[in-house]
Design a protein around this nucleic acid. Structure first.
Lengths: 156, 156
DNA sequence: TTTAGTGCAAAGACTTTGCATGGCC
DNA sequence: GGCCATGCAAAGTCTTTGCACTAAA
């Protein structure tokens, strides 16, 4: 909770700096976003539309806010095997890669300095200076049969 | 050329097996596809629409044929940072990963058994059985300033 | 002749944009 | 009060699909 409040503060500071406004919608979206590791606009929309409190939130606003978060650096777009854009919460997180279960849609984040080192080496060998990379491992997890709902799993 | 003819033969065999027909359009598309490492439906469409010989080719046909090639295993879909689907020619190629230049859009293919080994290790550690993976390294290449056109580079 | 493929246009999925209205500062 | 953000709907992309017509086998 404390960490989240700090993040909210960070967001507010960014807004002030850029002369943007802190609206009820932005607060709602930010708060929900900070609770996940990664989410799609659609998922966030469904999650926030079902709530009793407060009025409706337009999908367009979700997209706009999510894109704002990306500009600010709190979020980051990703595209896994399908064409949907996944917004990744990268605040206070080190770079990480993903393990994706094809059976239950669970997504696990991991990091491997050893792999990163080899990547740098590979880039250098081809005369490249690296900015970023994406590594996604697809397979199935050992207990996917227990994930009956086949929903994207909750954050670890 | 010889290699390409062999690939065309492979394609024809697949069609016969599946009781599909070899049409002028499919031949045209296959031929063009085999000449590249990776291409989008749109790019292929532009390339084949400009040709004098033969009649027009519908974009839908390109998509259908490209998807057919993927079913057969000659092609493979990928999504890089944007939302466009890139069709990768994987015929007779080992698995490979990509180095992508953000400046000139050049794409270099590489492979690294060392990285793959570490990936397997990572998956095992998280209780996953791996099916496939995607690794993309983004950066800029040493000579991007000479790539004035900023086109996707020709195959190596 | 039969069955599959093509072209075209329409529909679909996902995302962005224009505009009038509403709400922060 | 001024200006930005929102909601809504329309427009935009990229891709797939339905259908009548064409062409392989």
């Amino acid at each position: 909770m404390n960490a989240v409040n700090k993040d909210v503060q960070l967001f507010k500071n960014h807004l002030v700096q850029k002369r943007l406004k802190l609206t009820r919608q932005r607060e709602t979206i930010l708060e929900a976003f900070l609770k996940t590791d990664h989410i799609t606009a659609e998922e966030l929309y469904r999650k926030l539309s079902g709530r009793k409190q407060g009025r409706r939130l337009a999908l367009a606003t979700i997209y706009r806010t999510l894109n704002l978060l990306c500009e600010i650096g709190i979020g980051q777009q990703r595209h896994f095997d399908d064409n949907k854009t996944i917004y990744d919460n990268v605040l206070h997180k080190k770079h990480h890669d993903h393990l994706i279960c094809n059976k239950c849609d669970k997504i696990i984040e991991f990091e491997s300095p050893a792999i990163e080192r080899l990547q740098e080496e590979m880039a250098t060998r081809h005369g490249f200076t690296l900015h970023h990379h994406r590594l996604e491992l697809y397979g199935h997890c050992i207990d996917w049969e227990n994930c009956r709902d086949r929903q994207r799993a909750a954050p670890r």
